[in-house]
C-alpha cells in the first residue's frame, strides 16, 4: 500500500455510507417543522457526509467538485433565499417573515419548510468551506 492511499475497507465503507447519511440529512431538513431537527442539524449531517467522503477517498476527489468560489456563492444564496422570503412576505403586506401571508395553502408550513431549506443550504456550504480552508491551509 502506497503512503497516502487508504485501506480498501475504509474506502468502501465510506462510499457505501455516504448516500444513506445524505438521505437522512434531507429527511431531517424536510421534517424540521414538525419534529426535532431542522435546517441546521440537517445541513451539518449533509456536510459531514462530504467530510466522510473526503476522509475515505482522499480530499482531491471532493475538491475537484467543490471550488471555494462555488461554496461561497452557495452560502450566500442560502442567506439570500432566507432574507428574500422575508422580503416577499413584506411585499405581500404582512410583517417580515410572516409566512401566513404567502398565497399558498398551508402557508405557515410551506414558509417554514423554505426557511429550513435555506438554512440547510447555508450550513452545508459553510461547514464544507471551513473544512476546505483547514485542509488546504499551509
Amino acid at each position: 500500500m502506497k503512503p497516502g492511499e487508504r485501506d480498501i475497507i475504509i474506502r468502501t465503507v465510506c462510499r457505501l455510507l455516504v448516500p444513506f447519511v445524505q438521505l437522512f440529512g434531507l429527511y431531517v431538513i424536510m421534517h424540521g417543522h414538525s419534529s426535532p431537527g431542522g435546517g441546521f442539524q440537517g445541513g451539518a449531517i449533509i456536510a459531514s457526509s462530504f467530510i466522510l467522503l473526503a476522509m475515505g477517498g482522499g480530499y482531491d476527489e471532493v475538491k475537484r467538485r467543490f471550488s471555494l468560489g462555488a461554496l461561497t456563492a452557495t452560502t450566500s444564496a442560502g442567506v439570500l433565499l432566507y432574507a428574500g422570503l422575508g422580503v416577499v412576505c413584506l411585499m405581500l403586506g404582512a410583517n417580515y417573515l410572516d409566512y401566513a401571508a404567502l398565497p399558498v395553502s398551508d402557508a405557515r408550513s410551506v414558509g417554514m419548510l423554505l426557511i429550513e431549506i435555506a438554512v440547510g443550504i447555508t450550513v452545508t456550504a459553510a461547514i464544507i468551506s471551513i473544512f476546505h480552508d483547514l485542509v488546504t491551509f499551509e
Binding site: 442539524q41 459531514s48 476522509m55
Partner: peptide, 20 residues
C-alpha cells in the same frame, strides 16, 4: 432538538475539524 445538534455538530463536525 438540542441533543440532535450536539450529536451532529459536537460529536461529528468539530471532532473532524480538531483532528485536521
Amino acid at each position: 432538538d438540542v441533543a440532535f445538534t450536539e450529536a451532529a455538530v459536537g460529536a461529528g463536525v468539530t471532532t473532524v475539524l480538531f483532528v485536521v
